[in-house]
């Protein structure tokens, strides 16, 4: 478990990995994004395709991570307060 965590995280956290992902996404966007019609959005309208399908649980999660980790932000939900001990 400990060794696997190290190897995996090094790969997943490398800039190249994300650079690649971003370039791929932007290319697929260039070729496909202008053609989606309003009546073709059935899949995108499914609840499991939402950015935050369960906002109330997401608020709890982001509050926990905000309290227990050294960085925060990047999400819309999440309340205030500390609960930081």
């Amino acid at each position: 478990m400990r060794c696997c965590l190290k190897i995996r995280s090094e790969y997943f956290f490398s800039i190249r990995f994300y650079g690649g992902v971003i370039i791929l996404l932007s290319l697929s966007g260039l070729t496909g994004c202008a053609s989606v019609e309003p009546w073709e959005k059935g899949m995108l309208a499914k609840p499991e395709m939402g950015w935050t399908p369960d906002p109330i649980e997401a608020a709890m999660e982001s509050h926990i991570f905000f309290s227990k980790e050294g960085s925060s932000g990047g999400n819309v939900s999440g309340g205030g307060g500390c609960g930081c001990n």
């Binding site: 996404l25 697929s28 994004c33 989606v36 059935g42 899949m43 995108l44 950015w51 932000g73």
Partner: peptide
């Protein structure tokens, strides 16, 4: 205080991408 800007783009009928920037 935090300011954020983001952009979501439908790529095709089954995929959507979002990028965001936040300054706090």
């Amino acid at each position: 205080t935090s300011y954020s800007i983001g952009l979501a783009q439908v790529l095709n009928p089954s995929a959507i991408v979002q990028v965001g920037l936040e300054y706090a």
